[in-house]
């Protein structure tokens, strides 16, 4: 992807996808019941990491760099977030919930990395052999 020169349309596509992803995140946050542990952000980040790993399984993503940009750095980039995760860990620790802060930090990392690896693994299985090179 870095071999391709940066185009203005790439930025527009990432911006539009990012806005859609952020709105999806807002919808999940709004729909989720209030809880001390930030489940919505954990779920968003784990699902988003899995989906980004799985993305190359879609033929349209392998064929079109702009669809790949719209869905990857765009939708999934805007949907998932490190800042809210860091903010929630900080807030839990500051409020004296040190154990929950540590759990939020570690559980997000562990589940997110496993999800990304699993998504990639499934994508490799799904993609036709010639597209793997």
């Amino acid at each position: 992807m870095t071999a391709r020169p940066l185009r203005a349309t790439d930025l527009l596509v990432v911006a539009a996808g990012g806005a859609l992803g952020a709105l999806l995140r807002l919808a999940v946050d709004t729909a989720a019941p209030d809880s001390l542990f930030p489940w919505p952000t954990l779920g968003i980040n784990v699902v988003g990491a899995f989906a980004l790993g799985l993305l190359p399984a879609l033929t349209v993503v392998r064929r079109s760099p702009q669809v790949a940009l719209a869905l990857g750095p765009g939708v999934l980039g805007g949907f998932t977030t490190v800042s809210a995760w860091a903010g929630q860990v900080r807030a839990l620790a500051d409020d004296g919930h040190t154990g929950l802060a540590g759990l939020c930090l570690v559980a997000t990392l562990a589940a997110g990395l496993v999800a990304a690896a699993l998504g990639q693994h499934l994508a490799r299985g799904a993609a036709p052999p010639e597209s793997q090179t």
Partner: peptide
Amino acid sequence: CGAFTSFSSFAVQAV
């Protein structure tokens, strides 16, 4: 901040 930062890119880059 939510859209500027990205957990999915981070996780896939890491693995």
